[in-house]
């Protein structure tokens, strides 16, 4: 198809009096990973629920693969993959049985479930019941389930939440492979490192609103300040000085420190997404 895989215009949703999503608009192109970065309760999961047909938007228009999500068109579900935040797997069924079952709902006659499990490193546990799996293995199962129908759009809600770095890195690699295959990926996270590393673009969402949307690099350039940290010997101790690169007179000061016999190290520094988020919203990502 041509055009965006996901197109959202002025989308709104509220739980009773609580407005969870307030007039958000964005697009995701095929093969692109858009990271939804925000703290818990910011509206990330509600947005995914609307885009996957679990919730009906109160107003606005959302199209996935050109299909209006409020029309309950079964073709939409046939072409998306969803990884939920909660590990909603059939615990008494094996890994392969879980994948075979979901594949059958998509009308896939002979699913290659073991191959899908191999991608997430679970092929050797294909016949084991999911209830015997560790938290990290269950999360990898969740990811593999989202891949079973080779979706054109992937919705991943906190895919690496609470996992160890090795498992997280493995899952990120698999997500990147899906994007390279051409799938559009909408990823929610409150892990700025994950958003930075994985996302082609990042949307900061806070209190139901997108407060910034761009590539991580552009966000840093736009909202962050560049600086240099200089460490110098100071008697028996160490002294640090941080010099803003964009400020007046910083070049002369840097040259002076660089020439000092007490110089130990010089490091350039840039703002993190976490810092930019705090700068834009006044709150942290863990809140």
């Amino acid at each position: 198809m041509t055009g965006p895989a996901i197109s959202v215009e002025n989308l709104r949703f509220s739980y009773g009096d609580l407005e969870a999503v307030k007039d958000i608009s964005f697009e995701v192109q095929p093969g692109e990973i858009l990271g939804f970065l925000g703290p818990n309760g910011a509206g990330k999961s509600t947005t995914i629920k609307m885009l996957t047909g679990q919730l009906t938007p109160k107003s606005g228009v959302a199209r996935v693969l050109g299909i209006d999500v409020s029309t309950d068109d079964p073709e939409l579900q046939a072409r998306i993959g969803v990884c939920f935040e909660e590990k909603n797997l059939y615990l008494n069924m094996s890994a392969k049985e879980n994948l075979d079952f979901y594949a059958s709902l998509f009308g896939i006659k002979e699913p290659d479930s073991v191959e899908v499990l191999r991608r997430v490193g679970l092929a050797d546990r294909a016949k084991d019941r999911v209830k015997t799996f560790s938290k990290g293995m269950r999360q990898r199962m969740m990811i593999s389930r989202a891949f079973i129908n080779k979706p054109d759009v992937l919705f991943l809600d906190e895919p690496t939440d609470g996992l160890d770095p090795v498992t997280s890195a493995s899952i990120r690699k698999t997500i990147r492979e899906e994007a390279e295959r051409g799938a559009a990926v909408l990823l929610t996270t409150h892990d700025m490192f994950e958003a930075d590393e994985l996302s082609d673009r990042v949307a900061f969402i806070n209190e139901g609103q997108i407060v910034a949307l761009d590539t991580a690099e552009n966000l840093k350039l736009k909202y962050g300040t560049r600086s240099v940290k200089v460490r110098l010997r100071d008697g028996d101790g160490v002294r640090e000085e941080v010099l803003p690169l964009d400020g007046d007179g910083s070049s002369a000061k840097l040259a002076e420190l660089a020439a000092s016999p007490d110089l130990m190290t010089i490091h350039t520094e840039e703002a993190t997404l976490d810092q930019i988020f705090i700068q834009l919203t006044g709150r942290g990502l863990e809140g």
């Binding site: 079964p74 046939a78 059939y90 008494n92 069924m93 059958s104 709902l105 009308g107 896939i108 019941r129």
Partner: peptide, 26 residues
Amino acid sequence: MSRPTSRPAIIRALLKKELTAYSRDL
């Protein structure tokens, strides 16, 4: 990419899953 499957096929798949889940509830 998969295509929407028929309602009877979906219900059959769900029934098969129910039977598996039932047989595993000792």
